[in-house]
Amino acid sequence: MDSHFNKRVLITGIGGFTGRHLKKHLERQGMKVYGTTYTSSSMEDTFPANITDATSMVDVINKVGPDYIIHLAAISFVGHGDAAEFYRVNVIGTENLLQSILKSNAKIKKIIIASSANIYGNSNVDLISETLPPEPVNHYACSKMAMEKIVSNYYSKLPIIITRPFNYTGIGQAEHFLVPKIVSHFKQQKKEIELGNLDVYRDFSSVDFIVDAYCKLLGSDASGQIFNVCSGSSYSLKQIIELLETLAGYKINVTINPKFVRADEVKRIAGDNGKLLNLFPELKVVELVDILKKMLHKCN
């Protein structure tokens, strides 16, 4: 295991939900954190960089001289309206990043590429392991599967780990994602909410668990491997509402809006985290009720 103290890490997409939490977590480990953002940012030690531009990352990497790179920059909202953008950013952008690393002067100890459990699609297994063949059912998932194929071509050239995070949430996640949307309604004590299919089951982790796993993977000897990052349990939206009703002390009226029901919806996802926890048995899964409680009672 590698010591993180005084090491430099570059996070692409640092201004997003995961990037902000990851920055704080890595700094607590004694690391110096730099980042890229699509537009200019007031965040310290960040650089504006467009990963769809083949040359934009080389200068940043040479300026930072990172020991580690964590690639988060992506179109991550499944309902994003521009199908082509998924492929420009998630596939071509990742190819550009890897080419930039090879062209740079950096001596990289580890690269983490964030993929997604969405690539598994609809599955009949109780727990999805890394060996399950991908069956993506939407453009977001297809772009991530294509990205993984591109990344695997670099395994012999660079020390890469691909992560497949399942759903995760926490304080600061945008409200167009479902859990923050539902929590926000309860925080504002609204009486009604419009949702789509309530019988969609997802494996929800805390963003704190995700960034802790990423930090540990940076220092591991693993390379050329794929890791699920998940809780190992799944909950439906209906169950999430019921948990929040208990925590908030009142019931909310749910209206099903057909516009929110996607034809390509993956019905049930629960991940097998055995590979990750076998490597890091000290990783602690946060229970969903505790995640919701923290989000609900955090001051606006």
Rank of each mutant, 00 (worst) to 15 (best):
A213L: 09
K181C: 05
D53M: 09
T255Q: 13
F5V: 15
A270G: 08
L97D: 04
T39Q: 12
F204Y: 14
K259D: 15
K191S: 15
R88C: 02
C215D: 09
G249W: 11
M31A: 02
I11M: 03
A213T: 08
L195Y: 05
T12N: 07
A213E: 05
I150K: 15
I241V: 14
G249D: 06
A49G: 04
S152I: 06
Q188S: 12
I101M: 11
G121N: 07
P66S: 07
I70S: 10
I92M: 14
A74N: 04
Y87L: 09
L97M: 07
Q188F: 09
V151R: 11
K110G: 05
Y201E: 11
L218P: 11
S236F: 08
I92C: 09
S116N: 06
N96A: 10
Y154L: 10
K259C: 03
Y68H: 14
A84V: 09
K7T: 11
E245S: 09
F166P: 04
P133C: 01
G81E: 14
I160K: 09
K298L: 08
G13S: 08
N90M: 08
G224D: 03
I119N: 03
Q225K: 14
S143A: 07
G219Q: 04
L243D: 06
N138F: 10
L292I: 02
K63A: 08
D290F: 01
F166V: 05
A174P: 00
D212L: 02
N300E: 13
A213M: 06
Y168C: 03
T246W: 12
E245T: 04
G196S: 01
G219D: 03
A74W: 02
D53T: 08
F77L: 14
K284Y: 01
N105W: 00
V254W: 11
G79K: 13
V200E: 15
M1P: 10
G93M: 11
E95Q: 13
S41Y: 02
K293S: 12
V89F: 08
V254F: 10
I160R: 10
S100R: 05
N122V: 00
E85C: 05
G170E: 05
L132C: 06
T18C: 05
G65L: 07
L243T: 07
T12C: 01
S3E: 12
D45K: 13
L178E: 08
E242T: 14
G170R: 06
F260Y: 15
L97I: 04
L127F: 14
D221P: 00
N300L: 12
G224P: 00
